[in-house]
């Protein structure tokens, strides 16, 4: 069976500390103004009993990726193991993928003009290499990375146990699952 990488983000554990975002910037050597993880905050309740939910958003690695279908140069494309890739050497910077992405999680590199986004770099840690990914950096272990096609993976089990779903229903066939 093929590997099909995905992720679970448990927002009930997320404290909104932005560790994942800064770790990602360091791991992927991003510019100071370039972040692959965007935070949205949802406030509920009425004063004084209010709560704030932090929702980190990033490339959902959609199986039916709209970015890849509109990209005229093939820079945005479906790579191996279900990871949507953004080939920096092919991108002309037309930003069509940014318009097509319904999650608004693609970012333009202000130096090169090319569009980039979450690379699922956590895949590098599969063989035990330690690195500075969002998954490892999260102090509350809100993130689990793994193979969606392996029913015995920690990820697959957690998705079932915690009833995790893609953030926007069937908007696209997203591979990041959220516990809310």
């Amino acid at each position: 069976m093929m590997t099909r990488y995905g992720m679970l983000i448990d927002t009930t554990k997320c404290i909104g500390c932005y560790s994942c975002r800064t770790a990602c910037q360091r791991q992927n050597d991003l510019l100071p103004d370039e972040g692959f993880i965007r935070y949205e905050h949802k406030e509920t309740g009425t004063y004084p009993t209010v709560s704030v939910e932090s929702v980190p958003l990033q490339c959902m690695h959609c199986e039916d990726a709209p970015c890849a279908s509109v990209c005229p140069t093939g820079a945005a494309h479906m790579g191996a193991d279900g990871i949507v890739e953004a080939d920096q050497g092919r991108c002309i910077g037309c930003l069509y993928c940014m318009s097509a992405c319904p999650y608004q999680v693609r970012v333009r590199n202000s130096k090169t003009g090319a569009v980039d986004k979450c690379r699922f770099c956590a895949v590098q840690t599969e063989n035990g290499t330690t690195s500075c990914t969002c998954v490892e950096a999260c102090p509350t272990h809100a993130r689990i990375f793994g193979d969606l096609d392996d029913p015995n993976s920690e990820l697959s089990k957690a998705i079932v146990e915690r009833d995790a779903h893609p953030i926007a229903g069937d908007l696209t066939r997203a591979k990041i699952y959220y516990v809310r």
Binding site: S69, P72, G89, C91, I92, C94, T112, G113, V115
Partner: peptide
Amino acid sequence: AFAGFMHPLRFALLLTN
């Protein structure tokens, strides 16, 4: 399209998808 402007050969890739 700044990235293409800096690397004009990439405009040839426009006919790939």
